[in-house]
């Protein structure tokens, strides 16, 4: 009985936080243009979300491409189909691995950053200070973060794609001795508009959900530092799960529809 009650109350809590998150999303969408009034803030956020994550993204993408080429290459060799390795790596990176690697890396990086920054501001009453003056934390803190993620995630994902493809091409050449010119040619030939569309639509959605979820967790922080730690964990876990879940949905829907 007691156990049952605690399940019910924890379910209710989750439902309530889903409701709060939905309200935040509505608030974000209604006021999205307010980033103009906090330009310098938005630019600062863009810098820390984008350029500062560059190295991480290049390395992440590169490793993903190397792994894809190595695993794929050995299998293709057994079927005598090593000539399609360029195509496999390219489409694999652009459609799936690039967005997912960039999404997961940015979910942890940007997610942890947003939650801990906003959570610490919440704990030290800085957010109350804004609200007491009639300023909206959504406009002042959340929207600059959402906008900078929306702007930065797509180029970062494309950079992950490119560094993955470069890594894959070199592995294919060095390990499986495929002609470099042929590889480059097949990379260029195989990219279709549809693939680019799939690869580009994902990061747009990832960026919105990662930034809004992590800001939500930050804003909902109360109590002390332990609570903030828990919120940061939950934020990264939830953002990563949403990235994976959205990816499944996109892949499924896009294969069915397009």
């Amino acid at each position: 009985m007691i156990k049952n009650n605690s399940i019910v109350s924890s379910f209710k809590k989750r439902l309530a936080s889903l409701e709060d998150y939905t309200l935040l999303v509505v608030d974000i969408l209604k006021n999205i243009t307010s980033y103009k009034t906090s330009w310098s803030n938005t630019i600062q956020e863009m810098y820390s979300v984008g350029p500062q994550a560059l190295l991480l993204i290049i390395i992440g993408g590169l490793f993903a491409g190397v792994i894809l080429a190595t695993e794929g290459g050995h299998n293709l060799v057994t079927f005598g189909a090593i000539t399609v390795i360029g195509r496999t790596v390219t489409l694999g990176m652009i459609r799936e691995l690039g967005p997912i690697i960039a999404g997961l890396l940015l979910a942890s990086r940007t997610g942890a950053k947003n939650t801990s920054e906003i959570g610490a501001m919440q704990l030290s009453e800085q957010i109350d200070a804004l609200r007491a003056f009639g300023l909206s934390p959504t406009k002042k803190l959340v929207i600059p973060r959402v906008v900078s993620a929306l702007v930065m995630f797509l180029p970062l994902t494309l950079i992950a794609d490119i560094s993955g493809i470069i890594g894959g091409v070199f592995i294919s050449h060095l390990t499986f001795h495929v002609d470099l010119a042929y590889l480059i040619n097949s990379v260029m030939q195989c990219i279709k508009l549809k693939d680019l569309f799939v690869g580009c639509i994902k990061p747009v959605f990832f960026s919105f959900f990662i930034s809004s979820i992590s800001c939500y967790y930050g804003l909902s922080t109360s109590g002390g530092t332990t609570e903030l730690g828990k919120k940061a964990i939950n934020s990264v876990v939830m953002s990563s799960a949403v990235v994976l879940g959205l990816d499944v949905i996109f892949t499924k829907v896009i294969w069915e529809v397009l």
Binding site: E125, Q126, D128, A129, A132, G134
Partner: peptide, 14 residues
């Protein structure tokens, strides 16, 4: 609200 200033217990400085 804007006629009221507040000095928070923990200062709440940015």
């Amino acid at each position: 609200r804007r006629k009221i200033g507040m000095v928070f217990q923990a200062n709440a400085l940015f």
